[in-house]
Design a protein around this nucleic acid. Structure first.
Length: 811
DNA sequence: ATTATCCGGGG
DNA sequence: GTGTACGGATAAT
């Protein structure tokens, strides 16, 4: 029997002669695309009320809505349900579609207590049970069968993961991007507006296909007869390139559905799937596009999903993400004019083709850059790239737990009913501890952080839905969380606590190796392990979670508050002063103590911390400033600036990087912070401010510095409150420039009477003499620095330079 | 403050 | 497809 070593990429199933067959699509070690077909039977778990139900189940079969269903076998197994031993029945049925039918039927039976895992997708169940991890080497025995397929199909007689968990490398990525016709002022209309051009970018291809000819020297541009021919070309290119991964930017919801729709409309056969199927869509608010045998990597879904907390960006547009991650930007063209240029001035189309190709290139580069992270996630979670690409944090955790439960003989709890869900949504978790800072400028600060606070609490205190007990439990060694009136058994490792501990220790091992040697793949692994570890707390409190536990989630934050306040008490006993603390971080003033003493403080704390918990010394800062909150005297949370020893600044929460603020306001804010932190010289900062204010008054500053950027969030007509940006958008519309929701409107406020919105002008149409100095001083500059100067007792009047004059008048 | 709703990205 | 949203921001109450 021939043996094949291959890396699975995609998985589906089909019913062949009435029996379900799993199809794994992938590539062999030597690069050949193959499919592997393997028989597998669907099953789920039932917990009986009475043992006699087994026989009743075994004989269950029937018909519903013309479809027959049957139970093929029932097997008794000892399992655990939230740690409690149960006699479970493994109910095997003949087809996946029988599962929901039988499930609903037997749920009503008196002798059935509960039904479990009857909603785990068939292909996922297969991967878990066979211990197969996509993109990781698998050994198959079997012969090539004869069936209709683009690639050879091996009928498996045996399948198992390879001994060494070798990861697939050198995957072929093909980036796709389309440009479509859309007249000004109209929305996207897949039914009526054609695709004008598309760009593909891959290792061996960099091309734009358009169906209107114009003179060009670009070798990358190729012309076809019409839109149907363009779609044919798309099919051809995909089949020629044989990519493992097709990537796009929002291609789940735009490019691929658009291509599919146009192909249907023009009756073009798009049988690019390994089984000759086309692009399949899953609808909902969130569409997903799939092609059998190829993994579809929608970059935006990963950046906004699994990587969301790791990549901070204001906007998730291709331009914003590419400039953040690659330091590159899109080409600038007036996309709104494309339809008109296409119709009337095709000779001007070249820049649009360049734009199109650049988008495909950026998408390709993003996919290439993020693939190590996504691959690590696939290996961690054990689901195909297509799925890991689109998962939320709670789905990641749950999929990981479903993979792990076998090791603990656990059966997953049922998903909550609507009623249960409503109940869970009503309760609120108490958050983290915050010590508000007292506004002021401070010198010699030490900053500390609890490393992975919540995950380490879960692991160290055995916080797990299967170890929760009543607070007055008589169980020996149980750890009481008095704040929540619950306790946690320590007799046996809880399922979730054990899994979290494994994730943390795995990450620590990876970090240890990384200390000795740089390795981008291990860095990606460490990052994904961190993301996963940090997701468990949220999962425990997520209403839809199978392993939801309010007690556990509440205990995690309660212990977080407990540990941080205890650490603060110890710091004060040791002679430090607490300036600020939020969740897992502590800012101390050294109060004349040495840097060495600050460093040593963590050792004293760590000596008494349990398990994996650890306080880290984040660093020493020569100075730092905390300002007061908007409407009260207390210090603002998450709004401070620190000076590092190397002279650089750490700015948190200030407007310095926000939209909606003019360039000049950001500049002034940063400059003032720097002057104050470096020299503690508020007089000098004040002088600088007065200089800027004078410059603005005398109109010596460029209009560009006065530009305010605001995003238009909905169609112009649906605004009730007309802000300046809406007024500008209206003006632009009046000039025939159509502005769509999502556009960033740039404007400058000019002098004159009336409301701000009547005085907003386009920057291009504003002369330097026109901007409204008073507006910029009072509404932009002053609010940006007011709180900083307030720390030194400078009033708004002083900032405006009125203080001195008033004093003269007073005397 | 708290709850309802709107929206993202793509052209 | 043995299934379906999700989190943040803004408007409304």
């Amino acid at each position: 029997m021939p043996t094949f070593h291959f890396y699975p990429i995609d998985i589906t199933y089909r019913i062949v002669s009435g029996k379900p067959v799993i199809y794994l699509y992938g590539r062999t070690k030597d690069g050949q695309r193959i499919a592997v077909a393997d028989r597998f039977d669907p099953y789920f778990w039932a917990i009986p009320q009475k043992k006699s139900v087994k026989e009743r189940l075994e004989n269950l079969s029937g018909e519903k809505d013309g479809e027959s269903y049957s139970v093929t076998s029932v097997e008794e197994k000892k399992k655990r349900l939230l740690g409690k031993e149960v006699e479970a029945l493994k109910v095997t049925v003949s087809q996946p579609k029988d599962v929901p039918l039988v499930r609903e039927l037997i749920r009503e039976w008196d002798d059935i207590q509960s039904v479990h895992e009857a909603d785990i997708l068939f292909t996922r169940r297969y991967l878990i049970d066979k211990k197969i991890i996509p993109m990781t080497l698998v050994v198959v025995e079997g012969e090539e069968g004869r069936e209709e397929s683009r690639i050879p199909v091996i009928a498996a007689t045996a399948i198992r993961p390879a001994e060494d968990e070798e990861t697939m490398k050198g995957l072929g990525i093909l980036a796709v991007d389309i440009e479509t016709y859309y007249p000004k002022g109209k929305g996207i209309d897949m039914d009526n507006n054609p695709i004008l051009m598309f760009a593909v970018y891959g290792k061996n291809i960099s091309r734009v296909i358009a169906w209107k000819r114009f003179a060009t020297k670009r070798k990358s541009i190729e012309f076809v007869q019409d839109e149907a021919a363009l779609l044919h070309r798309f099919r051809e290119i995909v089949l020629e390139e044989q990519p493992d991964i097709i990537t796009g930017y929002f291609s789940d919801g735009f490019d691929l559905p658009y291509i599919k729709r146009r192909a249907e409309k023009l009756k073009v056969n798009l049988d690019i799937g390994a089984d000759f199927s086309g692009i399949s869509l899953k609808k909902g608010m969130d569409t997903e596009s799939k092609i059998t045998g190829i993994a579809h990597f929608d970059v935006i879904k990963f950046v906004r999903g699994g990587l969301r907390t790791s990549i901070a960006t204001d906007s998730y547009s291709l331009n914003a993400v590419a400039s953040k991650l690659l330091g590159e930007t899109k080409h600038e063209v007036e996309l709104d004019d494309l339809a008109e240029v296409w119709d009337k001035r095709p000779e001007k189309l070249e820049p649009y083709c360049d734009y199109n190709l650049q988008d495909a290139l950026l998408t390709y580069q993003l996919a290439e850059k993020l693939l190590p992270n996504l691959t690590e996630l696939v290996k961690l979670i054990g689901l195909p790239l297509q799925d890991c690409n689109r998962m939320s944090f709670s789905q990641l955790v749950e999929s990981f737990l479903l993979r792990k439960e076998g090791e603990f003989d656990e059966i997953a709890p049922e998903k909550p009913t609507e009623h249960e869900l409503a109940k869970r949504r009503k309760v609120r978790l108490q958050g983290a501890f915050v010590h508000e800072p007292t506004p002021g400028l401070y010198h010699d600060l030490a900053v500390y952080d609890f490393r992975s606070l919540y995950p380490s609490i879960i692991a160290s205190h055995n916080i797990s839905p299967d170890t929760v007990r009543e607070a007055d439990t008589l169980e020996e060694g149980a750890f009481v969380v008095r704040e929540e009136k619950v306790a946690y058994s320590t007799a046996k490792k809880g399922f979730i606590a054990a899994v979290v501990e494994e994730v943390i220790t795995r990450r620590m091992r990876v970090k240890d190796i990384l200390k000795k040697k740089k390795d981008p793949f291990l860095e990606a692994r460490a990052m994904m392990l961190k993301i996963l570890a940090n997701s468990f707390y949220g999962y425990l409190g997520f209403p839809s979670a199978r392993w939801y536990s309010f007690a556990c989630a509440a205990s995690v934050t309660a212990l977080g508050r407990r540990y941080i306040t205890e650490t603060i008490e110890k710091a004060e006993k040791a002679g430090f002063k607490v300036l600020y603390s939020d969740t897992d971080s502590i800012f101390l003033s050294l109060q004349g103590k040495s840097k060495a003493a600050a460093k040593k403080f963590v050792d004293d704390i760590n000596e008494h911390l349990p398990g994996l918990m650890e306080l880290e010394y984040e660093g020493f800062y020569p100075s730092g400033i905390f300002v007061s909150a908007k409407d009260n005297k207390g210090g603002a949370k998450k709004r401070y600036a620190l000076l590092r020893e190397d002279g650089s600044l750490v700015i948190k929460g200030f407007e310095a990087v926000r939209r909606n603020t003019s360039v000049i306001a950001k500049e002034v804010q940063e400059h003032v912070l720097k002057a104050i932190l470096e020299k503690a010289d508020d007089k000098k900062a004040l002088n600088y401010l007065h200089g800027v204010i004078k410059g603005i008054r005398e109109k010596k500053l460029a209009v560009e510095k006065m530009v305010i950027r605001t995003r238009l969030t909905k169609p112009i007509s649906s605004y009730d409150a007309i802000g300046p940006h809406v007024a500008i958008a209206k003006q632009m519309k009046g000039k025939g420039i159509d502005i769509a929701p999502g556009a960033i409107i740039r404007y400058v406020v000019t002098t004159g009477g009336g409301r701000i919105r009547d005085r907003a002008k386009l920057p291009e149409a504003t002369k330097q003499s026109e901007y409204d100095a008073d507006y910029y001083i009072n509404n932009q500059i002053i609010p940006a620095v007011e709180k900083i100067f307030e720390v030194f007792g400078h009033t708004k009047e002083e900032l405006l330079g009125k203080g001195a004059q008033m004093r003269l008048l007073e005397f």
